[in-house]
Design a protein around this nucleic acid. Sequence first.
DNA 1: AGCTACTCCTGGTAGC
DNA 2: TGCTACCAGGAGTAGC
Length: 281
Amino acid sequence: MPELPEVETVVRLIRPRLVGRSITAASVAWKRSIGSQSVASFARAVVGERFESVERRAKYIVMSLGGRGALVGHLRMTGRMHVEAADWDPGKFARVRLDLDDGNAFHFIDVRKFARLEFVRDPAPRLADLGPEPLGPEFTADWLAQQLRGCRGALKPLLLDQSFLAGLGNIYVDEALFRARLHPLTNSRRVSAEQAAALRREIRAVLGEAIEREGSSFDTFYRTPEGNPGSFQHQFRVYGRTGEPCRDCGTPIARSVVGQRGTHTCPSCQPRPRRTRRAAR
DNA sequence: AGCTACTCCTGGTAGC
DNA sequence: TGCTACCAGGAGTAGC
């Protein structure tokens, strides 16, 4: 499922094909994909507008349409974006199509219908609650250590909270926690300054490496806008490796549930915190 | 504040 | 082969 590296990959690939292009027609095959706006008013809002910029903020894709507004996209689990020649067939999961003035068409494709592509006059309000970018300058070891000291809950749900830190999802949280040798149930308040520094370093490392490899494709869903799978799934150390030997110590990777999310750890490299709350299942 | 549960969805898979 | 049941999960929301 698209997390920060996958969204970044999508943005980098579609940006040069969209910026400067104008929308000549819009059609919507699944109404909820565009949020609560009617298809007619969505089409009125976007047709004739020109893409000025395509940027990523956390897992959102913000496509600015002049001063008139913006398209804000979120791929959730199975969303995809393509810019292709007008006769390209987007398949049965096509949800929104925007024809462009250069003869291409932008396609918003989504199997599970959770993804959104909404027109808003001002994207700022819906991005206002997001925490800092993990690859940005605000995300320092000191900042993380200080924030963690002020929180009480388990580490993993906090890292998944987009208002705390914006862009991580289940896969990269599991990978970063493993690399930092921290158990997902560690109480945030008990993370030392050294551990916070390691966690910050590993979060940035795992995201950076994943972007280099154009994200992770371990199922049939995520593809780059060129239709290629990413390759970071080959670098997974714990995610999806339940029962397989830890690459560092050979101990079988364990699966548990933390915060209703499948969670993968090496029981030996990431020992459970001394004073645990009840582990979920 | 921090939990839990629920909602939205459907392809893939396990079990029979 | 064909059926059913269940699973995955990002984010928003509600309730305790």
